[in-house]
Amino acid sequence: MTAQLAEFLPWIGVWTGVGESQAGQPCFVRNRFFPGLEGDGLGMQFEAWDPGMTTLFHGVRAVLATAPSGVMRALAYSTIHGALILELTPDDPGVMALAGESVAGNRISVTFLQEEPGRLLFTAFWRPAMHERQPNDGPRMTCGLTRAVPKRPPGV
């Protein structure tokens, strides 16, 4: 396991929050980080639901892994974009920034930022292939995520 990957292992668990989709819809977000590749990777399952949790707006399943060259990438399937391979781009400690293009050519950016222990800021956007010059500061999805913990019975 690389030091870069080890940095994200404390995020293993379930994170939830209420935010807004890129299209401006309110949504409930659930993101799970879990061990993958026999401990050599980090699995992720991202879900953005309507507030009633009956419609999945966007789902992504992924694994963050290290290529033989040492480069880290996220291999993923998105219910919107299909097959994806995103690069882990250099950033500050506590930031997981992924970017790349879908097989269809859409440009995708996904960032998790640790704001404080137990709290992540998630932000992501995608731009269609035919709008390459659309600025990165256009509409995006943003959601604060809090680590989900089981309820403890009173007195325990």
Binding site: G36, E38, V63, A65, A67, L75, A76, G82, A83, V103
Partner: peptide, 30 residues
Amino acid sequence: PLTRGWGYLSLDRNGRVIDNIYFSDAGFSV
């Protein structure tokens, strides 16, 4: 463990399979 791998089988708009994969000894590919 000797090798590890991960992938996603899906269909393109023509119904043909796309398999984006990772193998620890070969890297990433579509």
